[in-house]
Design a protein around this nucleic acid. Structure first.
Lengths: 109, 109
DNA sequence: AAAATATATGCACTTTTTTGCATATAGCGG
DNA sequence: CCGCTATATGCAAAAAAGTGCATATATTTT
């Protein structure tokens, strides 16, 4: 039904309507990242970051895999990627993440 | 500052994260419409529709002009139009509104 | 197997949004 | 000027979202 598509779209937009989540997604479209990296980027407690990651994960717009102690997240929704591109501009090749530089990971991720 | 751009983007996404507002915007990208038309489309009380219109108007994504008793609204933000296109698909020429068919307007708008 | 590290979860509290309702304003026809 | 219609505004109650904190889990290291 048509009504449902507005509900669905609204829910997706709602996910994006939060500065911290947007920051996370913007980082992830540059490449995958571990939680501690995102923690460093956001400058927020780990618990806070994990909570936002949960919201995004449960909505299916990001996905994760585990490697030892670390959990890596990446974008899993191309529509979100395009919406971010429209909103924040597209990401140049130079801006992609090659390796994690956050103080927590110290080159490990 | 970069932080502000996330805040700004989040606010714009927030506007779109509501089924009724989304329905309104989707209708407006088909052409301008009076409040009573939108009222008929949404199937909600006039007061409710006007409230949502106010939210959108104060955020600057729609604009209005008055013609007699009627107030006509239209999209005023091309970025929003593109975001809607990405989210809901684009509008074909056939889907554009030629004249208002709502029971309230009875051909007047 | 204990300690340390990275990440996740549950829950109460606060803040923001949403919604309904009463009422206000403004233009038109008689 | 009066009543009618279209639209707007203000405000309070209800619902939802955001946030902080205590704590849980899982994996590695020693």
């Amino acid at each position: 039904m048509k009504r449902d598509s507005y509900r669905y779209a609204a829910r997706l937009f709602r996910l994006l309507s939060h500065p911290a989540r947007l920051r996370i997604l913007d980082e992830l479209r540059r490449g995958e990242a571990c939680v501690c990296h995102l923690q460093a980027v956001l400058g927020r407690p780990q618990v806070y970051v994990s909570q936002q990651l949960r919201v995004l994960r449960e909505a299916g717009v990001i996905e994760s895999y585990k490697d030892g102690l670390f959990v890596y997240y990446r974008l899993a929704d191309s529509r979100v990627e395009r919406l971010l591109g429209e909103m924040l501009g597209s990401v140049t090749e130079a801006e992609r993440l090659s390796h994690c530089t956050c103080p927590f990971c110290r080159g490990e991720c």
